[in-house]
Every structure is written in C-alpha cells, then in structure tokens.
Design a protein around this nucleic acid. Structure first.
Lengths: 272, 272
DNA sequence: GCTTGAATGGAATGAAAATTCTAAAATCAG
DNA sequence: CTGATTTTAGAATTTTCATTCCATTCAAGC
C-alpha cells in the first residue's frame, strides 16, 4: 500500500503516471491510458462507468487507484473534483481581515486584487461559450450601427467598446444616459445592441435591451449569471465570472472579453 | 409532480429558473440562488454538500429539484455533468487548444488576450513601487476633491475610478472633455489629480496635469513608462506594464491597479 | 383566534456505488 | 514442463448517498 504518498494535485498525479510509465501490468495500463485520454470524465463518473469505458472490470480500476497511491477511487476522484472548482477565496472576508490586522498596506491589497484578476481571467476562458462567442461576433460584424449600453460599474466597459469600435471606423453609439437623453429611437432594424450589466441589474440597461428586442435588433449581452434579465432566449449571452471584492467588482476579465469582442469584430469586418 | 417537463439542457434550466422567479418559497429560493451562484459545483457535489452550502436541509434541496421538473437530484445533476466535460480542461490545456483552434477565431483571440492579461497582472505586482503606491494612497486619502482625467484608451479607467470614489462617498470629478468643457478651474489647492495616459500621450491629459501642478495640486499618475510626460518629479507615478497583442493593448492590469487604488483610498479614509 | 394548507426539518429507507475478497488465469523463473 | 508469483474477474460486502415519509412549524384566509 502506497497510502500517504498520494499526489496532492493534478499536475503531480500526471507526473506520477508518467514515472510509473511502463511498469504497469496490462489492465492497469489501460486504466492509466484512459484517464490520460479522458481526464474530464473522472470527476463526474463512477468507477463502473470509467472501468467500462477503459475496457476493464471495476476491480482493476480500483487497484489502479491504489497503485497510484490513493486509498481508493473516491480519494482519487476528490482530487479531480477539487481541481476543477478551485474554491475562490472569499475576498470580502480577506479584505476585512486585512483591515483589522492593520496589514492592509496598498501593496498587500494589490497582491490580493492581482490574484483575483488572474483567477477571473483564467475562469473566463472556461465560462465563455465558444459558439455563443462566434455568434456574438457574427451579429456585431453584420450590424449596421452597434449600440452599446452599460451603466454604473459596467460603464467603463461600455466606453471601452465604443472607443474601440470608433477607432476602427465602425459605426457605434454609446448610450450613456448623460443628460437623460433617450437615444432608444436611434435603434433601427439591422442594428445590434451590446448590453452590459451585472447584478443588481441597472433597470435602464435592461429597459433598453427590451426596447431593442422589440425593435428587432440582435442583442449581445455581457453579464454575470445565467439568470440575468439580459440572458434571454435569442440573445447571445456571454458570462463573465468576475470576483466581487466587498461592494466592488473587478473588471479585468470583463475588459479582456470586451477587448476580444471588439478586435474579433474588427477582424471579421476586415477593418484591421 | 412536474416530471416530463424537465429542462433538457442548462440554458433551459436557467430559463426555467428565471420564469419561476419569485414564486418560490424561502428555502427553495435559497437553493435556486446557490445553484445560480455556483453552477460548476453541482456536477461534482452531493446533495448533502450543496444543501449545506446553500444553508438548507437536504430534503429541501430535493424538493427544489423536483419543483423544477426533475425526478430528483440525480436527474438534475446529470444535466450539469453532461455540460461539465466541455469546460473541463485545465487552464493551460484549454489555452493551448483554443490557440491552435486557428488564429482568427474569436476563441483563439480570447486565449491570446486572456494570457496577455494574466501576464500583465502578474508583472503589475512587481513593477509597481511599494513606496510610490503608499504615497499615492496618502495623497488621495488626504485630498479634498479627487479629480480624475483619462481620455481615449484611458477613459474607461478614469470612469471606473470616478465611479468607485463616488460610490464610496468620496468627492470626485471626472474630467471627461465631453462638450469641451474646461473643468480645470475647478481644481483648487488641497485637491488631488489622478491622471491616466499611455503613449501616445493625449495632449489634453498632459495639459490638465500641468495645470494642476501649477495650481499646487498633488498628482498621481498612472502611465506606462518612466519617460512619460506624466512622470515628473513630485508626481506619484505608477507604471503599468501592459502587454500588447498585435497592435492592441489590454487594460486588465490598469483596471486592477485602479481598483486597488480606489479601495486602498477608501480603507484609508475608513469609508468602507 | 381558529382552521386549513403549504412549507420545513430530520429521521428512516432503499438503492447505488465503492471497496474488498477469493478463486481462477496468466506470466515467469528455473 | 512445473511450481511460484503476479494479475485478473466477478461475486460478496460495506459504505455512502439519494430519496421518501411524517411530524412539526409557519402563514394565510375566514
């Protein structure tokens, strides 16, 4: 029994697998190969399923897990499950502690937020659906005028998008709400709307999206949750997993997505 | 029992959740909220775990699943597990796949920008001088009104800062240049200016910084190089090493820095 | 305030899954 | 070719987990 020598993370696990290399008997080797080829199945399957898929009886798969150093399949599966949703730190709590401990130097804060941003961006590549992204770019590339709306904390993103489009010579209107002008009537069929909003969803943004939908515009939504009022059927909804820090929302991932969107649209239109 | 009307995919599931909206009793609502907030946990957790995390007994979670239309938790989990493998690969693997997926596709672009953002943010913690940061926070925490200027590409950062300060109840003015109003005369001694600009430096931003300097304001600069016209003696200059992707420059690191600045100032002022 | 229906929490149940055990098969050394 | 050792498959067992049931609480309507 190799217990106690179990890999502590996925990288170590695959490293171990490589080391054990050819020393494994036939059935155990099949297990190893199958896990390497389908690592994504491990977290959501039963031994029976994995064993069947690998072409071995469950008991063989059991022995495989133990050979690696785990106590059993469940132990190994735990590793795969934890690795996927590496729990996001609770930044609100950490912030409070920093403040209490007096250790809240700006540099320490910066390190916290940098970490939050890094995690957000890494998760971005996971949470954005490839096909929806394609569709969003199609929609915007084919639109007459691109309308952009995003208020309060989404406003910086909206201004960035509007700036990018403008710089590339793409017709774009930023609905900023400045002066309470109602620019809704400028939206006509053939145009498209990019609506950006996070909980608590700004009513004005949602309202403009509704109006756009009624007028038959294609809508691209940048939002945070599947249940967002912006994520309705027919809308190309892109979800950004951004971390809230206290009452403040980081925008690193959102800005990254916005940048990608605008550049992709520019490329599709052949203006850059 | 609503069996037979169970959602067939995740999109339908969340759509259903949105429909059911507020019609749910307290405990069931807690379940709904938790699932919406942690969709990636569902595939790899047990009812007991999810229920505990949502703050309800397992039986409540069970009722939630059935209320949605599933026969039980397992049925609902199946849906989440099917979706799981698409998102699985770890960041490095996924990135590689996205990239080789052919340059030009939006997803490949996203991978590039995500990587650029991640690296930029990591460099940020190294390139920002601890003492300068301290001084910048001191300056802003002690200022009467905080003036913020940033145009063109830096405008989103400026709006973000202004929004943050406003939300914390800190007096701040955003010098946007809208309508070519010259708000420079609003700057009085005891105020401070945050000026954000990157090469090629926007003349208006530099001019406003000059004006502020003449009027005796403390200045915090967010810029890209030591040779920036904003980085003059007496100015607390923070340098952001943003990485280029082709001809485009991301803003992830800059936004992260902006967020840190605003929160640090808020903490120093004890308003958050 | 009382009645009625819904909502809740916790314990009981049954199913499914992980794990172990053992006999048979395969492999290898001499 | 034969005995020893490893490997294997499937059945037996134990554990975990989903699910149900029921007594209790809560809330709405009369």
């Amino acid at each position: 029994m190799d217990a106690g020598t179990a890999p502590q993370n996925l990288a170590a696990f695959f490293e171990r697998l490589r080391e054990m290399g050819d020393g494994l008997p036939k059935r155990l080797r099949q297990c190893a190969d199958h896990v390497v080829a389908n690592p994504d199945r491990v977290a959501v399957s039963t031994v029976a399923e994995l064993a069947a898929a690998a072409g071995v009886p469950p008991s063989a798969f059991m022995r495989f897990c133990q050979e690696i150093g785990f106590s059993g399949f469940s132990h190994m599966q735990r590793l795969f499950r934890e690795d996927y949703s590496q729990r996001w730190p609770d930044y609100a709590t950490r912030l409070a502690k920093l403040r209490e401990g007096g250790a809240g130097t700006p540099s320490a804060l910066l390190a916290e937020f940098a970490e939050a941003g890094r995690v957000s961006i890494e998760n971005l590549t996971r949470s954005v659906d490839q096909q929806v992204m394609e569709r969003a770019v199609d929609v915007l590339a084919g639109a007459g005028t691109i309308h952009v709306v995003g208020l309060r904390r989404a406003f910086p993103v909206a201004t960035y998008l509007a700036y990018s489009f403008e710089k590339m010579g793409i017709a774009a209107v930023l609905h900023s709400g400045v002066g309470n002008l109602d620019l809704g009537h400028m939206m006509t069929a053939g145009d498209a709307l990019v609506a950006i909003s996070f909980a608590p969803y700004t009513p004005d943004t949602v309202a403009l999206a509704d109006q756009a939908a009624r007028r038959g515009l294609d809508i691209v939504a940048v939002t945070d949750q599947q249940t967002s009022p912006l994520a309705r059927p027919g809308t190309a909804a892109l979800f950004v997993p951004e971390i809230d820090v206290g009452a403040f929302r980081a925008l690193s991932a959102t800005m990254t997505l916005a940048m990608t969107l605008s550049v992709a649209v520019g490329m599709r239109r052949r203006v850059i």
